[in-house]
Design a protein around this nucleic acid. Structure first.
Length: 154
DNA sequence: GCCAACGTTGGC
DNA sequence: GCCAACGTTGGC
């Protein structure tokens, strides 16, 4: 089983939105970066866990724990001409974009803030991609050690 | 294949 | 709103 960090802006879609969704489950869609697309298509498996990270907001940080309940499949939004994520270059036979389904396992309250994570940027979290300057990937891998360490901060 | 311009991201 | 960093685009 692998661990990931899923990043989203709560103003667009945050933990509260996921909690309200049916079965607290949603397709993680809208990814338009090829490196992250490859994670969705090839690496993220059913049963994997992830942190739900809130970015571009008043309190950036980890706000919940997710479970992947469906592995990568062709992103539906890219195939829907009426959807804002529609991409005419994607089709069902050879999809360009992928999504996985995630379910909210639990919230983390209070949020484990970015500030708190940074305190360990030279220690246990020295390899943490989210702490790297300029990192823009919306999904990043998390090691088992990082996962456990961060949970201990909660 | 290069690279400048542009758009997006995300912390502050 | 600002700015740094990065990915993508498109002319050449």
């Amino acid at each position: 089983m692998n661990y990931w960090l899923f990043k989203s802006e709560p103003g667009t879609f945050g933990v509260d939105d996921l909690a309200r969704a049916k079965d607290a489950t949603t397709p993680w869609d809208g990814v338009r970066n090829y490196q992250v697309r490859n994670f969705l298509r090839d690496a993220i498996r059913k049963g994997d866990q992830g942190f739900f990270y809130h970015s571009s907001c008043a309190e950036p940080g980890i706000a919940g724990i997710l479970r992947v309940v469906r592995a990568g499949y062709a992103e539906a939004a890219a195939l829907d001409p009426k959807h804002r994520y529609f991409d005419p270059a994607s089709d069902r036979a050879s999809p360009r974009w992928y999504s996985v389904d995630v379910r909210l396992e639990r919230r983390i309250e209070p949020v484990i803030g970015l500030e708190k994570l940074r305190k360990h940027a030279r220690g246990a979290l020295s390899e943490m991609l989210i702490l790297r300057r300029g990192n823009r990937l919306s999904i990043t891998p998390v090691t088992r050690e990082e996962w456990r360490f961060i949970l201990s901060l909660a």
